[in-house]
């Protein structure tokens, strides 16, 4: 459903962040994008919804070429791509409910959104999603009163209320503790499964990626250097992506105790 063909991004500074990336993601597939800092992971997902304008190449979502859309059609296309951010990127001074509803901005007119007059069906859906992520009692709290894990749940609800076909997830767990990280990853993967969503998850925690996703892409200096299942991530492959390190010691299976709590 998503195809990237020779997607390339060169920043005005001359840095080549993405170089001829070819990738095809079938419907419902969740994949992890790993690679060292500066490998172009963030640039890759931002080139898809054009928060970063790719220099060349195409990205096709459900047969529609995203790279050539005009401003109005790009907005319509963005509604089908939910995005989840590293530091949650909630609007801190708005309430949890307003943050969730902001995912619907692409569907409502300016005055309705300005006056916060969202359709009742949208509000019903927002409550359903808040309940699904376990925050139904937090709807009226201001976003800056929440803990990290709670904020990321709001971020997930905001992405899902867009009714997206694809999730672009940028380091969802980088600011969270190990336990919350796993809960958030599990939640994202479960929701993708429930709704048949495809997702690209940037993540630098290789062990976490191996635990949750069926397919891993390795990016190094803007180039795709690995595409395979989690079990194909051998120490040799990791050395190729990240450089020399004692991988046997660092990616040991993390033990699975006390994970069931909410």
């Amino acid at each position: 459903m998503l195809q990237l063909q020779k997607l390339t991004k060169r920043y005005p500074t001359g840095d080549l962040a993405l170089s001829d990336v070819d990738l095809e993601i079938p419907k419902g597939q969740v994949l992890a994008l790993i690679g060292p800092s500066g490998a172009g992971k963030s640039t890759l997902i931002r080139s898809i919804n054009r928060l970063v304008e790719p220099t060349s190449g195409v990205a096709i979502l459900d047969g529609e070429n995203l790279t050539t859309l005009n401003a109005g059609n790009l907005r319509k296309a963005r509604r089908r791509m939910g995005m989840i951010f590293q530091e949650y990127a909630l609007v801190e001074r708005l309430s949890v409910m307003e943050n969730v509803l902001s995912g619907q901005l692409g569907y409502v007119g300016f005055w309705r959104s300005f006056l916060r007059k969202f359709p009742q069906s949208t509000i019903d859906e927002a409550f359903r999603l808040l309940e699904r992520v376990g925050l139904e009692h937090m709807a009226d709290k201001r976003a800056d009163q929440l803990s990290g894990g709670q904020r990321q749940r709001v971020g997930i609800a905001r992405a899902l209320i867009q009714d997206p076909k694809l999730l672009l997830v940028d380091e969802p767990t980088a600011s969270l503790d190990p336990k919350t990280s796993r809960q958030i990853m599990r939640l994202i993967c479960e929701l993708c499964d429930e709704r048949g969503l495809s997702a690209i998850i940037n993540i630098h925690d290789v062990a976490l990626a191996k635990m949750f996703v069926p397919r891993v892409i390795g990016l190094k200096l803007g180039k795709m250097v690995f595409d395979g299942g989690p079990d194909d991530l051998t120490p040799d492959v990791l050395t190729d992506i990240y450089g020399e390190e004692d991988w046997e010691a660092t990616i040991e299976k993390v033990d699975d105790e006390d994970e069931e709590t909410a």
Partner: peptide
């Protein structure tokens, strides 16, 4: 950026 990504005008 997050608000832009939702398709907001």
């Amino acid at each position: 950026e997050a608000i832009t990504a939702t398709g907001a005008s």
